[in-house]
Simulated scan of single mutants.
Amino acid sequence: MTLLQVQHLGKVYTTRFGGNQVEALSDVSFSVDSGDYIAIMGESGSGKTTLLNILAALDKPTRGNVILNRKNMVHIPENEISAFRRNHLGFVFQDFNLLDTFSIQDNIFVPLVLAGKKHKEMEQKLMPIAKKLGIENILAKFPYEISGGQKQRAAVARALIANPELILADEPTGALDSKSSDDLLEQFEQINAEGQTILMVTHSIRAASHAKRVLFIKDGNVFHELYKGETSNEEMFQKISHTLTMLATGEDSNA
């Protein structure tokens, strides 16, 4: 079943001084099926961050539509957008975005607190996720007392706890060492295997090689895409490397 449809998305910014217009996205179209795991890659300035912000309902496109489970996010009124984001989307950030004055448990609870859930319900939702991510022993600790890998697992738990339709991950391995990155990517694969849809923006070829599908953005357009199928992570790594070389050199993606 198609969960997300991105239709002819364009975004033009007007600079503060001089009134010049900058086209960040030109004509981006793709769809995401329920249970998919997609990585978005591209050079700096390619438009992938703008795309992620629009998909996260943090920005509005100049043209086009973003339809999540038959709801057009572009037309959601400003006074309803925060609730929509909280109820339908989960977020994992490069810098974790944990609150230092909250325990790990309370950080994970934040989406449910904002949704007005009762404490008993929050606790029932927490433990299965905490055990799955291996963080049940650090729930009483504070962010400054745990490692980067543990912080990111807590951030993943916070993203999962409201049972979102789509998880958006922005460079989730960017602040992690190689072992913590590998651990997180294995957890993402497991979470996806259990049915969670994930869309991840990353510069990391290793991270992208774990996804089922990779979209490459160049000059505000989808330049190319790869499907993993039965390909191994190592083979996918090589395919992604080759495509990124094409992006950098300007080769034809169909060559």
Score class of each variant (00 low, 15 high):
residue 9 L to E: 07
residue 13 Y to W: 13
residue 15 T to W: 00
residue 17 F to G: 06
residue 21 Q to T: 15
residue 26 S to L: 02
residue 28 V to W: 08
residue 31 S to P: 00
residue 32 V to Y: 09
residue 35 G to P: 10
residue 36 D to P: 11
residue 38 I to D: 04
residue 43 E to C: 04
residue 44 S to Y: 11
residue 44 S to Q: 09
residue 47 G to T: 11
residue 62 T to A: 07
residue 64 G to T: 10
residue 65 N to Y: 12
residue 66 V to E: 09
residue 68 L to D: 06
residue 69 N to K: 11
residue 70 R to E: 15
residue 75 H to R: 03
residue 78 E to G: 00
residue 80 E to R: 14
residue 82 S to G: 11
residue 83 A to E: 15
residue 87 N to W: 04
residue 87 N to M: 13
residue 88 H to W: 00
residue 91 F to I: 00
residue 92 V to R: 09
residue 94 Q to R: 02
residue 94 Q to I: 04
residue 95 D to P: 04
residue 96 F to M: 11
residue 99 L to S: 00
residue 100 D to P: 13
residue 105 Q to P: 00
residue 107 N to Q: 01
residue 108 I to L: 05
residue 113 V to R: 14
residue 115 A to Y: 12
residue 123 E to A: 15
residue 126 L to Q: 12
residue 132 K to M: 08
residue 133 L to T: 07
residue 135 I to L: 07
residue 136 E to Y: 07
residue 139 L to A: 09
residue 142 F to Q: 10
residue 143 P to V: 05
residue 143 P to K: 05
residue 146 I to K: 03
residue 147 S to I: 01
residue 147 S to R: 03
residue 157 A to H: 07
residue 160 L to M: 15
residue 160 L to C: 12
residue 165 E to I: 08
residue 168 L to F: 10
residue 168 L to K: 11
residue 169 A to E: 03
residue 170 D to N: 12
residue 173 T to H: 03
residue 174 G to F: 08
residue 174 G to E: 05
residue 174 G to M: 02
residue 183 D to P: 00
residue 187 Q to K: 09
residue 188 F to V: 04
residue 189 E to K: 08
residue 193 A to S: 14
residue 194 E to D: 15
residue 200 M to C: 04
residue 201 V to W: 02
residue 208 A to C: 12
residue 211 A to V: 01
residue 212 K to Q: 08
residue 212 K to E: 06
residue 214 V to R: 05
residue 217 I to Y: 09
residue 220 G to S: 09
residue 222 V to Y: 04
residue 223 F to G: 04
residue 223 F to W: 08
residue 224 H to G: 01
residue 229 G to T: 08
residue 232 S to H: 00
residue 235 E to D: 13
residue 236 M to W: 04
residue 237 F to R: 12
residue 237 F to L: 09
residue 239 K to M: 07
residue 243 T to W: 01
residue 248 A to Y: 00
residue 248 A to Q: 07
residue 251 E to C: 06
residue 255 A to N: 13
